[in-house]
Protein backbone atom coordinates (compact mmCIF):
# COMPACT_ATOMS: atom_id res chain seq x y z
CA UNK A 1 0.00 0.00 0.00
CA UNK A 2 1.57 3.27 -1.11
CA UNK A 3 2.17 5.76 1.69
CA UNK A 4 3.86 8.65 -0.07
CA UNK A 5 2.65 9.14 -3.62
CA UNK A 6 4.69 11.37 -5.90
CA UNK A 7 2.72 11.96 -9.03
CA UNK A 8 4.38 13.41 -12.12
CA UNK A 9 6.20 16.30 -10.44
CA UNK A 10 7.67 19.17 -12.47
CA UNK A 11 9.58 22.01 -10.91
CA UNK A 12 11.21 24.94 -12.64
CA UNK A 13 12.70 28.20 -11.45
CA UNK A 14 11.79 30.78 -14.03
CA UNK A 15 12.29 29.27 -17.47
CA UNK A 16 14.73 26.70 -16.18
CA UNK A 17 13.33 23.24 -15.47
CA UNK A 18 15.02 21.52 -12.54
CA UNK A 19 12.85 18.44 -12.12
CA UNK A 20 10.56 16.83 -14.65
CA UNK A 21 8.24 13.86 -14.66
CA UNK A 22 9.23 12.62 -11.23
CA UNK A 23 6.88 9.86 -10.15
CA UNK A 24 7.28 7.18 -7.55
CA UNK A 25 5.53 5.75 -4.60
CA UNK A 26 6.94 4.83 -1.24
CA UNK A 27 5.62 2.41 1.34
CA UNK A 28 5.26 3.25 5.01
CA UNK A 29 8.50 2.53 6.83
CA UNK A 30 10.70 2.52 3.74
CA UNK A 31 14.09 4.20 3.83
CA UNK A 32 14.75 6.01 0.56
CA UNK A 33 18.25 7.18 -0.29
CA UNK A 34 18.54 9.86 -2.95
CA UNK A 35 21.75 10.35 -4.88
CA UNK A 36 22.72 12.37 -7.92
CA UNK A 37 25.18 14.90 -9.27
CA UNK A 38 25.58 18.22 -7.50
CA UNK A 39 22.95 20.72 -8.56
CA UNK A 40 20.66 18.16 -10.19
CA UNK A 41 17.77 18.99 -7.88
CA UNK A 42 17.92 16.61 -4.93
CA UNK A 43 17.42 19.35 -2.38
CA UNK A 44 14.69 20.78 -4.57
CA UNK A 45 12.94 17.41 -4.47
CA UNK A 46 13.25 17.38 -0.69
CA UNK A 47 11.86 20.91 -0.48
CA UNK A 48 8.87 19.73 -2.47
CA UNK A 49 8.39 16.77 -0.14
CA UNK A 50 8.65 19.21 2.75
CA UNK A 51 6.00 21.45 1.12
CA UNK A 52 8.39 24.37 1.49
CA UNK A 53 7.78 24.89 -2.24
CA UNK A 54 4.94 23.89 -4.50
CA UNK A 55 5.73 21.99 -7.70
CA UNK A 56 4.86 23.74 -10.95
CA UNK A 57 2.98 20.56 -11.93
CA UNK A 58 2.04 17.34 -10.23
CA UNK A 59 1.33 16.60 -6.63
CA UNK A 60 2.67 14.82 -3.58
CA UNK A 61 0.34 13.09 -1.18
CA UNK A 62 1.10 11.50 2.15
CA UNK A 63 -1.31 8.76 3.16
CA UNK A 64 -3.79 9.95 0.56
CA UNK A 65 -4.16 13.38 2.20
CA UNK A 66 -4.48 16.46 -0.02
CA UNK A 67 -1.11 18.02 -0.92
CA UNK A 68 0.29 20.19 1.87
CA UNK A 69 0.73 23.91 1.22
CA UNK A 70 3.36 24.63 3.84
CA UNK A 71 5.71 22.65 6.10
CA UNK A 72 4.01 21.19 9.12
CA UNK A 73 4.12 18.73 11.95
CA UNK A 74 3.70 15.67 9.71
CA UNK A 75 7.11 16.24 8.12
CA UNK A 76 10.35 16.23 10.05
CA UNK A 77 13.58 17.56 8.62
CA UNK A 78 17.29 17.62 9.34
CA UNK A 79 19.59 19.73 7.21
CA UNK A 80 23.32 19.53 6.86
CA UNK A 81 23.63 22.60 9.09
CA UNK A 82 21.50 25.08 11.09
CA UNK A 83 18.97 22.44 12.12
CA UNK A 84 19.03 23.20 15.84
CA UNK A 85 18.27 26.48 17.54
CA UNK A 86 21.50 28.11 18.71
CA UNK A 87 19.82 30.22 21.40
CA UNK A 88 18.32 27.22 23.19
CA UNK A 89 20.02 24.68 25.38
CA UNK A 90 20.13 21.07 24.23
CA UNK A 91 17.24 20.31 26.57
CA UNK A 92 15.17 23.23 25.27
CA UNK A 93 15.85 22.16 21.71
CA UNK A 94 14.22 18.82 22.39
CA UNK A 95 11.44 20.45 24.39
CA UNK A 96 10.80 22.74 21.41
CA UNK A 97 9.30 19.74 19.66
CA UNK A 98 6.52 19.84 22.24
CA UNK A 99 6.33 23.51 23.15
CA UNK A 100 6.35 25.02 19.64
CA UNK A 101 2.98 23.49 18.90
CA UNK A 102 1.31 25.46 21.69
CA UNK A 103 -0.36 28.83 21.31
CA UNK A 104 2.54 31.00 22.46
CA UNK A 105 5.32 28.47 22.21
CA UNK A 106 5.61 27.80 25.94
CA UNK A 107 4.43 24.71 27.76
CA UNK A 108 1.89 25.30 30.51
CA UNK A 109 3.41 24.98 33.96
CA UNK A 110 1.76 21.69 34.81
CA UNK A 111 2.83 20.03 31.55
CA UNK A 112 6.45 21.02 32.04
CA UNK A 113 7.57 18.28 34.39
CA UNK A 114 6.31 15.47 32.20
CA UNK A 115 7.79 17.05 29.09
CA UNK A 116 11.16 17.45 30.76
CA UNK A 117 11.15 13.80 31.78
CA UNK A 118 10.32 12.72 28.25
CA UNK A 119 12.96 15.04 26.83
CA UNK A 120 15.51 13.65 29.28
CA UNK A 121 14.63 10.13 28.13
CA UNK A 122 15.14 11.23 24.52
CA UNK A 123 18.47 12.81 25.42
CA UNK A 124 19.47 9.60 27.14
CA UNK A 125 18.50 7.70 24.03
CA UNK A 126 20.57 9.94 21.73
CA UNK A 127 23.47 10.01 24.17
CA UNK A 128 23.27 13.69 25.02
CA UNK A 129 21.96 13.51 28.57
CA UNK A 130 25.23 14.86 29.93
CA UNK A 131 24.98 17.88 27.64
CA UNK A 132 21.40 18.82 28.47
CA UNK A 133 22.26 22.30 29.72
CA UNK A 134 24.82 23.19 27.07
CA UNK A 135 24.19 25.39 24.08
CA UNK A 136 24.58 23.77 20.65
CA UNK A 137 27.74 25.76 19.86
CA UNK A 138 29.44 23.73 22.58
CA UNK A 139 28.59 20.45 20.81
CA UNK A 140 30.59 18.66 18.14
CA UNK A 141 29.14 18.37 14.65
CA UNK A 142 28.04 14.78 15.24
CA UNK A 143 26.36 15.66 18.50
CA UNK A 144 24.54 18.56 16.87
CA UNK A 145 23.20 16.28 14.15
CA UNK A 146 22.15 13.69 16.72
CA UNK A 147 20.33 16.44 18.56
CA UNK A 148 18.70 17.58 15.33
CA UNK A 149 17.51 14.05 14.58
CA UNK A 150 16.29 13.55 18.14
CA UNK A 151 14.46 16.86 18.02
CA UNK A 152 12.82 16.00 14.70
CA UNK A 153 11.74 12.56 15.92
CA UNK A 154 10.30 13.93 19.17
CA UNK A 155 7.68 15.67 17.06
CA UNK A 156 6.76 12.21 15.66
CA UNK A 157 6.49 13.18 11.99
CA UNK A 158 5.00 10.85 9.40
CA UNK A 159 8.02 11.19 7.16
CA UNK A 160 11.55 12.25 8.00
CA UNK A 161 13.57 14.21 5.44
CA UNK A 162 17.34 14.34 5.69
CA UNK A 163 19.40 16.57 3.39
CA UNK A 164 23.00 15.38 3.52
CA UNK A 165 22.70 15.07 7.30
CA UNK A 166 26.17 13.62 7.72
CA UNK A 167 27.83 15.57 4.92
CA UNK A 168 29.89 17.72 7.27
CA UNK A 169 31.06 14.92 9.57
CA UNK A 170 34.32 13.03 9.64
CA UNK A 171 34.25 9.35 8.48
CA UNK A 172 34.38 7.88 12.00
CA UNK A 173 31.55 10.01 13.33
CA UNK A 174 29.63 9.22 10.15
CA UNK A 175 29.77 5.49 10.88
CA UNK A 176 28.55 6.09 14.42
CA UNK A 177 25.72 8.18 13.05
CA UNK A 178 24.77 5.35 10.66
CA UNK A 179 24.39 2.95 13.58
CA UNK A 180 22.48 5.58 15.51
CA UNK A 181 20.09 6.22 12.63
CA UNK A 182 19.59 2.48 11.93
CA UNK A 183 18.68 1.87 15.57
CA UNK A 184 16.26 4.76 15.69
CA UNK A 185 14.68 3.55 12.51
CA UNK A 186 14.30 0.06 13.90
CA UNK A 187 12.54 1.52 16.92
CA UNK A 188 10.24 3.93 15.15
CA UNK A 189 9.58 2.34 11.77
CA UNK A 190 9.80 5.82 10.31
CA UNK A 191 9.54 6.55 6.59
CA UNK A 192 12.78 8.31 5.68
CA UNK A 193 14.06 10.23 2.64
CA UNK A 194 17.77 10.91 2.79
CA UNK A 195 19.82 12.85 0.26
CA UNK A 196 23.46 11.86 0.26
CA UNK A 197 26.56 12.25 -1.86
CA UNK A 198 27.99 9.05 -0.48
CA UNK A 199 26.84 6.04 -2.54
CA UNK A 200 28.00 3.55 0.09
CA UNK A 201 26.03 5.39 2.72
CA UNK A 202 22.98 5.40 0.45
CA UNK A 203 23.09 1.66 -0.15
CA UNK A 204 24.00 0.84 3.42
CA UNK A 205 21.11 2.71 5.01
CA UNK A 206 18.47 2.69 2.32
CA UNK A 207 15.90 0.14 1.27
CA UNK A 208 15.85 1.83 -2.08
CA UNK A 209 18.31 4.14 -3.78
CA UNK A 210 16.84 6.69 -6.18
CA UNK A 211 19.23 8.20 -8.69
CA UNK A 212 18.38 11.66 -10.01
CA UNK A 213 19.79 12.60 -13.39
CA UNK A 214 18.83 14.19 -16.66
CA UNK A 215 17.13 11.52 -18.75
CA UNK A 216 18.31 13.02 -22.03
CA UNK A 217 21.16 15.26 -22.95
CA UNK A 218 20.47 18.20 -25.21
CA UNK A 219 23.82 19.05 -26.80
CA UNK A 220 22.87 22.65 -27.63
CA UNK A 221 21.35 23.60 -24.29
CA UNK A 222 21.76 21.08 -21.48
CA UNK A 223 19.81 23.35 -19.16
CA UNK A 224 16.47 22.91 -20.88
CA UNK A 225 16.06 19.39 -19.55
CA UNK A 226 15.26 18.76 -15.92
CA UNK A 227 16.34 15.80 -13.84
CA UNK A 228 14.18 12.84 -12.98
CA UNK A 229 14.56 9.47 -11.28
CA UNK A 230 16.70 7.50 -13.72
CA UNK A 231 17.31 4.45 -11.51
CA UNK A 232 15.44 2.99 -8.60
CA UNK A 233 17.65 0.36 -6.98
CA UNK A 234 16.55 -2.20 -4.47
CA UNK A 235 19.18 -1.70 -1.79
CA UNK A 236 18.09 -4.35 0.70
CA UNK A 237 20.40 -7.27 1.32
CA UNK A 238 23.45 -5.26 0.43
CA UNK A 239 22.02 -4.23 -2.90
CA UNK A 240 21.83 -7.75 -4.26
CA UNK A 241 18.28 -8.30 -5.49
CA UNK A 242 16.16 -11.45 -5.37
CA UNK A 243 17.67 -12.61 -2.07
CA UNK A 244 14.37 -12.98 -0.33
CA UNK A 245 12.42 -16.00 -1.42
CA UNK A 246 8.85 -15.02 -1.85
CA UNK A 247 7.39 -18.55 -2.07
CA UNK A 248 6.65 -20.81 0.82
CA UNK A 249 9.29 -23.52 0.33
CA UNK A 250 7.91 -26.05 2.77
CA UNK A 251 4.58 -26.53 1.12
CA UNK A 252 3.84 -29.43 -1.05
CA UNK A 253 2.85 -28.15 -4.44
CA UNK A 254 0.16 -30.18 -6.04
CA UNK A 255 1.43 -31.68 -9.22
Amino acid sequence: MSFVTIDNIFQSYGPRPILERVSTSVDEGEFISIVGASGCGKSTFLRLLLAEEQPTRGEIRIDGNPPAREPGIERGVVFQRYSVFPHMTVMDNVLAAESFGTRFGFLPRKARKGARDRAMATLDRIGLAHAADLYPTALSGGMQQRLAIGQALTATPRILLLDEPFGALDPGTRLQMHDFLMELREETGMTVFMVTHDLDEGFKLGDRVLVFDKPRWDPTDPDIIGATITYDFDARNGGIPFQTIKEETHVLHPA
Binding site: E52, P71, T102, F104, G105
Partner: peptide, 21 residues
Protein backbone atom coordinates in the same frame (compact mmCIF):
# COMPACT_ATOMS: atom_id res chain seq x y z
CA UNK B 1 19.17 30.72 8.47
CA UNK B 2 16.05 29.72 6.58
CA UNK B 3 16.60 26.16 7.80
CA UNK B 4 15.67 27.24 11.32
CA UNK B 5 12.42 28.81 10.20
CA UNK B 6 11.53 25.64 8.26
CA UNK B 7 12.53 23.46 11.18
CA UNK B 8 10.31 25.44 13.53
CA UNK B 9 7.38 24.95 11.17
CA UNK B 10 7.93 21.20 11.12
CA UNK B 11 7.75 21.31 14.91
CA UNK B 12 4.31 22.84 14.59
CA UNK B 13 5.19 26.47 15.31
CA UNK B 14 2.74 29.15 14.17
CA UNK B 15 3.93 32.52 12.86
CA UNK B 16 3.57 33.97 16.33
CA UNK B 17 5.58 31.21 17.95
CA UNK B 18 8.31 31.58 15.34
CA UNK B 19 8.46 35.30 16.08
CA UNK B 20 8.43 34.78 19.83
CA UNK B 21 10.64 31.75 20.25
Amino acid sequence: PHEQIIKAQTLGASTGVIALR
